[in-house]
């Protein structure tokens, strides 16, 4: 009746919980777990362990620290006056300059908040491109919005609505924390056929705005706002397809 879980079984269970098995193996293990209480208990314990670790407070990137790091790679124009100086001798001045630039920029408008003056859309396109180059476009791999939302909550203290749109042809792949213009923002990742769609959700917007098509950095985008977030969907999908994804997302989040 009771039995010990073998090391191999435990390893597979961990990979199952992490969504790291092949699709076929995932299905095999899902049914094995359903029919075996010992496996189910071990799976529960792995999930609980994973959750308490993920919920731990992470060291924050302080603005002071970020300024120090940014100053290291200050463009040539900023350091040209004193090219012979080592960074350690001059970083305080540069850091101060970066801090002031950041303050001025962020008090003006979010769209200009990058110290390099790049548009928000270009930064979103960069972020999307980076995520496609990475081993995985998501930090938390899950088609279950009950996993994605707690992950974003734990890392950022907020999370946008994350409806699963699998029946509409846009399964939820997971979520990640994106840093855009020096601000961490929750990002949802959906898939449509072989295309990846990133939905960047900046908090703090009160006014609702209808979807508006855009393009930047070779990607199509749609911007809209509601539910306290300003959303930007970015993908290599055709504009029409991306618009219909956004329509489905908006419908799913507006329904009670």
């Amino acid at each position: 009746m009771t039995r010990i879980i073998s090391d191999d079984e435990r390893t597979a269970l961990n990979a199952f919980v992490d969504g790291e098995l092949e699709a076929r193996e995932m299905a095999v293990w899902a049914s094995r777990i359903a029919g075996d209480r010992a496996l189910a208990a071990a799976r529960d314990e792995i999930e609980a362990t994973r959750e308490v670790v993920a919920a731990l407070e992470r060291p924050a990137v302080s603005s002071d620290f970020l300024a120090r790091i940014e100053a290291m790679a200050a463009p040539a124009s900023a350091t040209a006056a004193k090219p012979a100086r080592r960074w350690t001798e001059g970083w305080q001045n540069i850091a101060a300059a970066v801090v002031i630039t950041a303050l001025v920029a962020s008090s003006a408008t979010y769209y200009l908040s990058s110290p390099r003056g790049t548009s928000f859309e270009a930064l979103v396109a960069d972020a999307h491109r980076r995520s496609l180059l990475a081993a995985s476009p998501v930090d938390v791999l899950s088609s279950d919005r009950h996993t994605v939302k707690p992950y974003l909550d734990a890392h950022l203290g907020l999370s946008p609505p994350a409806p699963d749109l699998a029946t509409q042809g846009y399964p939820l792949v997971g979520g990640r924390v994106e840093v855009i213009g020096q601000q961490p923002v929750p990002t949802l990742v959906y898939r449509h056929n072989e295309h990846t769609i990133s939905v960047v959700a900046r908090p703090g917007t009160t006014a609702a705005a209808a979807p508006k098509p855009l393009a930047s950095g070779g990607y199509n985008m749609v911007e809209w706002s509601g539910d306290g977030f300003a959303f930007t969907a970015v993908s290599d999908l055709e504009p029409d397809e991306l618009r219909s994804f956004v329509a489905d997302y908006v419908t799913a989040t507006r329904s009670p």
Binding site: R58, P59, V61, F65, I69, E70, M72, R116, R130
Partner: peptide
């Protein structure tokens, strides 16, 4: 540096 390093400071 901004594309590769800065996003992964946290």
């Amino acid at each position: 540096f901004h594309q590769i390093v800065v996003p992964h400071l946290a």
